[in-house]
């Protein structure tokens, strides 16, 4: 059995196991699994772009928000179907990501971070303002007959698609190009890689997936508020979970999401005032103690036991 077939099989088994979760539990734990699945999709797709390029994007919240918000306005103000709006949101977010990418990917790392953060905040402000001043008379309701289990399965499908996409990228010229860009961009250009296009395509894919996730999650809230879905906190959580797990392996972010979601959940329940402090400590822990994430730790351990 070749390595490729084996990893695909393992992936399929994992998806099947994950799909069974709603049959085992349907209350509190399902809702946690749902949150975790959402972050698995978001962090893994974030890492596909940011892992190799080291460009830290804080725009996840914006794309996610576009998903949630467009589904909400479309369904409550324009009577469109959920599916259509999900599709529209994904297209809009992908295009927006393309524009951001074209405009910014020649900027240096710091400026890219700040640009994405600023842009996400600006979109949040503008949407809130438009909503409050022009459309605000009625609230935004997302009424569907989806249960948590349905939402969970849809998210699982997106997460599986992200993994498949990542697996495919890893074996393609595009993925190899990305690796080279992350190493030395000048060399990348001089061996014939269209660096701008490569980065933009990958960045668009993160926009696409984040918008899908945002759209799918919308029915869970049923009442949508722009400030809720365009949450800057979400962007930070995505980054932190991905880095905690490790971004240089496809399955790295997964290892970060699961423990982090559990701890985050516990903290939100027991000591809600400490979430921000915890977020800060998590950032510091990653930078100072586990710069390559859990994957890095595991690999080091394995290396040591072999040697």
């Amino acid at each position: 059995m070749t390595g490729e077939v084996r990893s695909l099989l393992i992936g399929a088994v994992c998806v099947a196991l994950a799909a069974a979760v709603p049959y085992v539990t349907d209350g509190y734990w399902l809702s946690i699994a749902l949150t975790a699945m959402m972050y698995i999709a978001l962090s893994t797709s974030w890492a596909l772009f940011s892992g190799p390029t080291h460009y830290i994007s804080l725009a996840s919240g914006a794309f996610f928000g576009i998903g949630g918000y467009l589904v909400a306005t479309g369904m409550s103000d324009y009577n469109q179907s959920f599916w259509l709006m999900m599709f529209v949101a994904a297209v809009v977010a992908t295009l927006l990501a393309g524009l951001i990418g074209l405009a910014t990917l020649r900027l240096s790392g710091v400026y890219f971070v700040i640009f994405t953060l600023g842009l996400a905040e600006m979109i949040r402000n503008l949407v809130s303002w438009v909503q409050n001043n022009f459309l605000g008379s009625r609230g935004l309701y997302v009424l569907t007959d989806f249960t948590d289990a349905h939402i969970y399965w849809m998210l699982l499908a997106v997460a599986a698609a992200v993994f498949l996409f990542g697996w495919f990228i890893d074996r393609s010229r595009l993925g190899f190009a990305l690796k080279i860009i992350g190493n030395e961009e000048t060399v990348a250009r001089h061996v014939g890689i269209n660096t701008a296009w490569t980065k933009v395509v990958l960045f668009m894919s993160t926009g696409f997936f984040a918008a899908l996730v945002g759209a799918i999650i919308a029915p869970r809230y049923s009442y949508i508020e722009p400030n809720l879905v365009f949450s800057p906190e979400l962007s930070f959580l995505v980054v932190i979970m991905a880095l905690l797990g490790g971004t240089h392996r496809l399955w790295g972010p997964l290892l970060g999401v699961i423990p982090f979601t559990l701890i985050w959940e516990a903290i939100s329940i027991w000591v809600p005032n400490f979430t921000t402090l915890f977020l800060g400590l998590a950032f510091l822990t990653i930078v100072y103690f586990i710069p390559n994430g859990f994957v890095g730790l595991l690999e080091k351990l394995r290396h040591r036991s072999v040697a």
């Binding site: 010229r173 190899f176 190009a177 690796k179 080279i180 992350g182 190493n183 030395e184 060399v187 990348a188 061996v191 014939g192 890689i193």
Partner: peptide, 16 residues
């Protein structure tokens, strides 16, 4: 390309 093997450094030139 410091993160790649000697082989992949050269393959980089061959692929693109």
């Amino acid at each position: 390309l410091p993160g790649l093997s000697v082989m992949d450094n050269v393959v980089a030139g061959a692929v693109f």
